[in-house]
Design a protein around this nucleic acid. Sequence first.
DNA 1: CAAAATGGTTTGTAACATAAACTTGTTTGT
DNA 2: ACAAACAAGTTTATGTTACAAACCATTTTG
Lengths: 115, 115
Amino acid sequence: MNEQLKAISKLDRVIHEPSRLMIISVLWAIKECDFLYLLHETKMNKGNLSCHLTRLEAANYIKIEKTYRGKVPKTLLCLTRIGRTAFDRYCKNLKIAFNPDFEKTPKKTIPPIPH
Amino acid sequence: MNEQLKAISKLDRVIHEPSRLMIISVLWAIKECDFLYLLHETKMNKGNLSCHLTRLEAANYIKIEKTYRGKVPKTLLCLTRIGRTAFDRYCKNLKIAFNPDFEKTPKKTIPPIPH
DNA sequence: CAAAATGGTTTGTAACATAAACTTGTTTGT
DNA sequence: ACAAACAAGTTTATGTTACAAACCATTTTG
C-alpha cells in the first residue's frame, strides 16, 4: 500500500463529509459565527445543518453555545482545539493523497506493476 | 457563498468516498489492473471492493472486464474516459476548496463578517 | 475424492444524510 | 387582545450507503 493510498484511508470521515467540510472550513477561517450565518453561507437547509452541527459537537470538534440576542435565540458555533487539530491532520493527509503538488497529468508515483 | 464552499459542495460524491478515491487513484496511475491487485493495494475486503467497483461501473467511471487467465477468473478494471474526466474535475474542485496553495495557517480569504 | 484455496458476488445490518414536520417562542396585523 | 405569520432551530422519518459476513462456483492440493 503506497503513501497516497494510506493517506486516503486515514482521512477522518467526520470531517470528510462535504457538508461538514464546509462548516469546518468556515469556522476555521472566522473564529466564531452563528447558526444563520452558516445556514446562508453554506446553502444547506436547517434540519440538515442542525444534524451536522450535532455530529461535529459529538466528536468534540465544535462548541455549540446557545445564547440570546435580546429575546431572539442565537446559536454560536466555534471550532474546538481538538477540531482544529483534526482539520489540520485531515488537510495533511489530503495533501499527501494528492501528492506531490496537486497538479498531475499524469501522476509521478507509479504503483508496482500489477500482476 | 464563497468560491471554496461552492467547490466543496460540487465535489462528486461517487468519487469522494475514500474507498472509491483509492480505487480511482490507482486506476488513474496505471492504465489497468485486476481485482486482486486492487484488493491488496487498498487493503479493502473483497465484498467491499466488489460493491464499490459495481458502483463505479454504474456511474460509467470504470470498465469491468471479466476474463480468464487459463482456468482462473480474472477481473480487469480500467478507468473510462468519463471516469478520468470526472476525476480531473474532482481534483480541480478540491484544489479550489483548499485554495490557494493548500498550506494555510490561517486562510487568506476571510468570509464576510458574520452577523 | 475430500478438503482447502481462489476469485469473486450476494445479503443483511447498522450508520448516515437529508428534508419534512414539528416545537417554542416572538412579532405583526387588525 | 388575539390570531396569523415569522424566527430559529430540533426531531422524526425515510431512503441511501458502506461494510463485512456468508455464500457460491470452480480449481487445486493432499
